[in-house]
Design a binder for these strands. Structure first.
Length: 492
RNA sequence: GCCCCUAUCGUCUAGAGGCCUAGGACGCCGGGUUCUCAUCCCGGUAACAGGAGUUCGAAUCUCCUUGGGGGUACCA
């Protein structure tokens, strides 16, 4: 619940009334509305439109199985004589569950007039008497929404297709209570590229597969990372239990596997910006008809039309999502992007948090075209690393510094850079290009060894900016360290 | 089993009987730009699920089949 609220806020979606902001139609939490539901339920019972029932879950299961065996749909059979107060008292004394069931009265069936799908018809036998108050005293979803929609003056109910079949129940209830009927729109479901529907279960399942594949993984360390016991981990691996979200995340990190993003926060942590998510999610199951797809929130709002929601399920395409992110990162104002980046760095605990705004802005500016903020962070992390603790990518060192003899050119590069009076990206560019020309080689022959020396990898922002961001002192220090470490072996 | 929804390139989709030789975007493939990774610029690949109707004419309407999804709860 709290997470949903946080997610909405991150997306920049706010609400006029509801949890946290209050409003004229509260309270907004179902747990605070129990008395309301109960009084309406009692009214229905008094009017003979609902009745108490005492079946156990087991008894109901038997009935359902019987119906299926007979190749029939199941509908609860209403007793010929509705139970009275004495029956309730007796059931309570016997320790039987006491629930309240709504007596559906619709001999001619139901028509749901859906904004997306048109009129959908259901036969009278399709909707049996259903529970409105559970034996624990809480309302079922069906009952609570109907009451809430009426009391909160809801005009449009837009929800997942999985609720289409529930709508006759809701309408029957509205009729019995004398409520008005909101307009309904049942949206298509978003399915995952890994198969079924996009579900929270995908993350733990992916993790389990990763653990199974990686036989060498240290199970004890894994359990410790997730803060769960070895038995719990075993249970999880056997498919008997699911650890909670933080545990799953922690174990994935320990194992070094990437889990598919499902929840909105997952996308935040992966470096997507809210503008992207609003645009992309808005286009899943909706299309304004034009040829433009990259839209700002205000544009999306103005172009939205409930009648243009699509009917068929849509698949969540992460490739397209990341391309949308590239576009939105490019469209952001520098200030907005900086704010997003800082939130991202804080969330992921990046060492780049130490950098000041000017430096971070520069990083963002240099990395326009990146797919995600995570990519930018990775590319620029070298700035915050300790000069003598750079992690060298072995294959980069092997190829650039050793095999191509790059280490041998570093001392000269260092000398020329050291001679610079005024250090700017432009000046650095001049030095390096001049050097390449002098040596009759491509710029790459000079830039790549330098890049590996100061970042440890072959991936970084443009080399001139990279050197400038790092500062000349640290650049020279790193070159010296790299020469000492990788240079002599090449020469001797 | 029963019930409901749904069906255009690999994916998201445009398309409401002739503007369709089916458009766009992402992806993919090829080429160019480039100091790396990206970006960027050119070009290309690729779809109306199948079968019957209706109509002068069908991606568009009807029916059937098949595929996909959902529901079938004292979960939401």
């Amino acid at each position: 619940m709290q997470q949903v609220l946080n997610d909405l806020r991150w997306l920049g979606i706010d609400w006029d009334e509801g949890p946290e902001v209050g409003g004229p139609n509260g309270p907004y939490l179902q747990s605070q509305r129990l008395d309301i539901y109960r009084s309406y339920a009692e009214r229905l019972v008094r009017e003979g439109k609902a009745y108490y029932c005492f079946d156990t879950v087991e008894e109901l299961t038997v009935l359902r199985d019987k119906a299926e065996a007979a190749k029939q749909g199941f509908a609860y059979t209403r007793p010929a004589v509705l139970p009275d107060e004495k029956d309730v008292a007796r059931a309570r004394a016997e320790g039987r569950p006491v629930a309240i069931r709504f007596a559906v009265n619709a001999p001619q069936g139901f028509v749901v007039d859906d904004l997306i799908r048109g009129k959908v018809r259901f036969g009278p036998a399709e909707v049996g008497d259903f529970i409105i108050i559970k034996s624990d005293g809480f309302p079922t979803y069906h009952f609570a929404v109907v009451i809430d929609d009426e009391l909160m003056k809801v005009t449009h109910v837009i929800r997942g297709q999985e609720h289409l079949m529930n709508t006759p129940c809701h309408q029957a209830l509205q009729d019995a209570l004398g409520f008005r009927r909101p307009a309904y729109a049942h949206m298509s479901v978003t399915v995952s590229d890994s198969g079924g529907k996009l579900s929270k279960r995908e993350r733990p399942v992916t993790l389990r597969k990763a653990i199974e594949k990686n036989a060498a993984a240290d199970r004890a360390a894994l359990a410790a990372a997730g803060g769960i016991s070895a038995e719990n981990l075993d249970g999880f691996l056997r498919g008997e239990s699911m650890p909670d979200m933080p545990a799953v995340d922690a174990m994935a990190r320990q194992l070094g596997v990437e889990l598919p993003e499902i929840n909105i926060v997952d996308f935040f942590r992966s470096g997507y910006i809210p503008e992207t998510m609003v645009n992309f999610l808005g286009f899943l199951g909706f299309n304004p008809g034009g040829e433009r797809e990259i839209l700002r929130r205000e544009e999306l709002v103005s172009v939205f039309d409930i009648h243009r929601l699509t009917k068929a399920n849509s698949l969540f395409d992460r490739k397209k999502l990341s391309s949308f992110n590239t576009e939105h990162i490019k469209m952001c104002t520098p200030e907005t992007l900086l704010a997003h980046f800082k939130m991202f760095l804080a969330q992921t605990g990046s060492p780049l948090q130490k950098a000041d705004d000017a430096m971070l802005s520069r990083m963002l500016h240099c990395c326009l075209g990146a797919r995600t903020l995570a990519e930018i962070e990775r590319k620029c992390r070298f700035v915050s690393a300790d000069d003598d603790a750079i992690e060298f990518d072995p294959s980069a060192v092997e190829k650039v510094l050793r095999k191509d003899g790059g280490a041998a050119t570093l001392p000269l590069v260092a000398r020329r850079l050291g001679e610079l009076k005024e250090v700017t990206a432009e000046a650095i560019e001049q030095v390096l290009r001049g050097l390449a020309e002098e040596k009759q080689v491509g710029l790459g022959k000079v830039a790549q060894p330098l890049r590996v020396a100061i970042t440890g990898t072959t991936i970084s922002p443009p080399i001139f900016d990279a050197v400038d961001m790092l500062g000349m002192d640290r650049t020279l220090k790193r070159i010296a360290l790299a020469v000492r470490r990788f240079g002599t072996e090449t020469n001797g």
